[in-house]
């Protein structure tokens, strides 16, 4: 490279200098920029820098990279995915929906594409369409995350109580795929309570109880569900079971501040119900 070409790179290097002091993301942007100065039409490099700029919240720079990549490779769907991610990050929901819809028209089995579009649609108050894309992502993925099932159930439920059963079925699909994950069951319990499905809520709670080494809090929750279900006698039994679980804990756990609060809460609940000991015995 001759002197004048090096000189031409100088402004670029000067621009990059402050970035060097700001950690790996900036360092990577600088490195990719240096590579791009030698191959300015390299689409994978442009996509990479666009993504790095997006992560660094340099929105304009990211947009310029993705747009140039799109212009250079109009048949390549990747710039559309980048533009979709970028618009979603910026809250430009219409743009995000448009880019991601076009991306998925080419790459219809792309898990992340469906997830991103679903999230854009949720934020754009189009829950019904979002559910379709969450479902598609869940069907396509071999390793879905619990978050996706919960996001889909929230999208379903946001359409009104008539979608409750659907939302619950979606969470159960998650339990069937991932196992007895408490976060899925807790989300399902909240929905069951909303439709007064107390027995179903209790069954779900039992799966958490089974996987939890410490039972006292879940047994307290069992009592609360029973109380809400108008079954005070069984609630007392559950609270007593919570007390037994509490008493079975090592003293170092029983005496913690959190457990002292727990004990007060349990005392209060038992005291408020008929035919129950008024307080827990003091150790």
């Amino acid at each position: 490279m001759n002197f004048w070409r090096w000189l031409g790179l100088l402004p670029l290097l000067l621009l990059a200098l402050p970035a060097l002091a700001h950690g790996p993301l900036h360092e990577q942007i600088t490195n990719v920029t240096a590579e791009l100065s030698l191959r300015p039409n390299d689409v994978p490099l442009l996509l990479r820098r666009g993504e790095l700029n997006r992560l660094d919240e340099r929105w304009d720079a990211a947009l310029a990279d993705f747009q140039l990549a799109k212009q250079l490779a109009p048949a390549n769907p990747e710039p559309l995915l980048g533009l979709g991610r970028l618009a979603l990050d910026q809250g430009k929901l219409t743009d995000a929906t448009a880019s991601l819809t076009r991306f998925l028209a080419i790459q219809s089995n792309h898990v992340e594409g469906h997830l991103l579009l679903a999230r854009a649609l949720v934020r754009n108050q189009r829950a019904s369409n979002a559910v379709e894309h969450f479902s598609r992502a869940l069907a396509l993925s071999t390793e879905p995350r619990p978050e996706w099932f919960i996001e889909r159930s929230q999208a379903q439920f946001s359409q009104g109580d008539r979608h409750l059963a659907e939302a619950l079925a979606g969470l159960d699909e998650g339990v069937a795929k991932l196992g007895p994950v408490p976060t899925l069951q807790l989300a399902a319990i909240a929905l069951e309570m909303r439709r007064q499905g107390f027995d179903a809520a209790l069954q779900r709670l039992d799966t958490i109880l089974a996987s939890s080494e410490r039972k006292e809090r879940w047994l307290l929750r069992r009592g609360e569900i029973l109380e809400l279900g108008g079954r005070p006698g069984e609630a007392v039994t559950a609270y007593n079971a919570a007390r037994e679980a509490f008493e079975a804990l090592p003293l170092r756990l029983q005496r913690s501040l959190a457990m002292l609060d727990f004990r007060r809460e349990l005392d209060a609940k038992l005291a408020a119900l008929p035919a129950s000991p008024k307080t827990l015995p003091t150790k």
């Binding site: 898990v111 390793e143 995350r145």
Partner: peptide
């Protein structure tokens, strides 16, 4: 990518999602 639970990190490691090694199931390797 954690959002899609895919890529090298997730491919090369086998991590507990169901509390196999103790603790509560998280349902994810993330």
């Amino acid at each position: 990518s954690s959002p899609t639970q895919s890529g090298v990190y997730y491919d090369v490691f086998t991590l507990p999602t169901l509390g196999q090694s103790g603790g509560l199931p998280s349902g994810t390797e993330a």
